[in-house]
Amino acid sequence: MMLLRGIWDSRQARLGLALLALFAAVAALGPFLTRDPAAFLADPLLPPSAEFWLGTTRQGQDAFAQLIVGTRSSLGIGLLVGVLVMSIGSLVGLTAAYFGGLVDDVLSLIVGVFLILPGLPLAVLLAAFLEAGPLTIAAVLVLTGWAWNARVVRAQALALRRRDYVLAAIALGEHPLRIMLLEMLPNMTSIVFSSFIAATMHAIGAQVGLEFLGLGDVSQVTWGTNLFWAVTNQDILTESWWTILPTGLAIALFGFALAQVNYGVDEVTSPRLKVDRAYTALVGQRTGLRRLLTPVVLARSDADRERTSA
């Protein structure tokens, strides 16, 4: 509860949440409010106008409608992958850290191998051979993405493993799963949340990339397939920036929103930032090694001898 309260306190987090709400609204309601993105409505490659806010595509479709309708699928799959990656990664990481020993060695080895295999080439290979479609892409992305989360969670969990309350719980004979989920996990919210955000962003980007290559279901309207259709010729570029630019902006904006919320979470879980600000306010900005030189600031009561030393 305090966590949510704290997040609300942060200005950045509020901004992020507002943006996320906007995206959610667009995803949920957008398709009902725009034209049919698949319909061939006008001349191809018309620039933005009052009638077509983002102009028309190479096939004469409403680019704005495509962007709006694509939101649902792209964000949905992205978030799904993010949640799955976070869950699987956290579970594996916690298990490895909790049990240690052989379990840890084996799990770490598996994580290591998955981590080192380059994601996109593997994803391309998988997606090319399997049936096209968003769920395939989701599965492929989860497979190539879970390892990073596992490593991050494991590192943090290892530090917690030696804490008093964990040792006490073990001594009391609590079930390992209980300890992992109820004792350790709540103390790792910051890092789990950050890595969830990273995983989601990566998933969205990778998804768009795969679909752009033509490995998604090109009959569906998603951000990635929009780009695919905008670029089907060898000739990547024409003057029609409106078919390409908005997609990237939307992705970046979403990422930005997530990052802002993340910042809010960070602020709550690390009060150091507040202390830093109070300190800088008092002694002014001290760069580099000067920070290690204890400043002398006379107390307010000696106001007439205000003297700040080196």
Binding site: D276, A278, R291, L293, T294, P295, V297, L298, A299, D302
Partner: peptide, 16 residues
């Protein structure tokens, strides 16, 4: 002692 030697890191401040 560290403050007297000016070796105390932030957020410490010597006030008098």
């Amino acid at each position: 002692i560290l403050a007297a030697l000016r070796l105390l890191p932030p957020p410490a401040v010597i006030v008098s």
